[in-house]
């Protein structure tokens, strides 16, 4: 068994004295692990940093084996990530969430594309939080927990959509919420791609997506918590408000 693909490195951990086991989000093979022989060497270890864009050749005797990778660097994103606190926290949040959410060996090509684009924006702190919010919405969508913001779940209205139902994940209009308004999650215009997307709105929107990550996605995956790295990113981002 062998294949060749491009991928984003999510994690790398030492295996034995000289090798590393890497977890990569690939374009056509989804999240896929494998051993890199000599992965802890001075030559290869700097390549195996989270977020790195790699050209991968995977080989194993049987398909369900762990297999070994030959890696070639395409783009290192470490320098962009290490350049600032927000970028570093953002990179950690993205790689941690992908490791946490994605099933192994199941292709998510659209999400891969979006993840690659998002990581290529690292270091551009003015637009990165908005890009991250859109990526998080796409992540929820791709994994079957999408938020439907097209019309009010109660009345069918498409105007004055200001809430999201925490149960159904559908938009709710001001009139449709009625007396349950205080139980609804906020739906700032930025979530519908409207307005100037100020940081305050993005922070509110991340609170809403966070609810679905924590109360819908994580329990479905058998986890009690969303990765701490996401919280650290929100914390760093909130400090600039």
């Amino acid at each position: 068994m062998d294949w060749r693909d491009h991928g984003i490195l999510l994690t790398s951990r030492q295996h034995g004295e000289t090798s590393a086991i890497i977890d990569v989000f690939t374009r056509r093979h989804g999240r896929h692990s494998g051993v890199v022989r000599g992965g802890t060497s001075r030559k290869i270890a700097p390549i195996l940093q989270p977020g790195a864009q790699l050209d991968l050749a995977w080989r194993a005797r049987l398909e369900d084996h762990l297999g070994t990778y030959q890696v070639e660097p395409l783009r290192s994103r470490a320098a962009a990530a290490l350049s600032g606190r927000l970028a570093l926290a953002g990179l950690n949040a993205v790689t941690a969430l992908l490791s946490f959410c994605l099933p192994e060996r199941e292709a998510h090509s659209d999400l891969y594309q979006r993840s690659e684009q998002l990581l290529d924006l690292l270091g551009q702190d003015d637009i990165w939080p908005l890009a991250y919010l859109r990526w998080e919405l796409a992540l929820l969508q791709d994994l079957g927990f999408g938020i439907d913001l097209s019309a009010c779940a109660a009345t069918g209205a498409t105007e004055e959509l200001v809430y999201v139902s925490p149960r159904s994940g559908r938009a709710v209009s001001r009139a449709g919420a009625g007396e349950w308004a205080d139980r609804m999650l906020p739906l700032p215009p930025v979530m519908r791609g409207e307005g100037l997307a100020p940081d305050e709105e993005i922070a509110i929107a991340l609170g809403t997506t966070g609810h679905f990550l924590k109360h819908r996605l994580a329990p479905a995956l058998g986890h009690a918590q969303v990765p701490e790295a996401r919280g650290r990113f929100i914390d760093v981002f909130s400090r600039r408000l």
Partner: peptide, 11 residues
């Protein structure tokens, strides 16, 4: 040098 080190050095 890898591109990350070069860009860090440049900055």
């Amino acid at each position: 040098l890898d591109d990350g080190t070069i860009s860090a050095a440049m900055r």
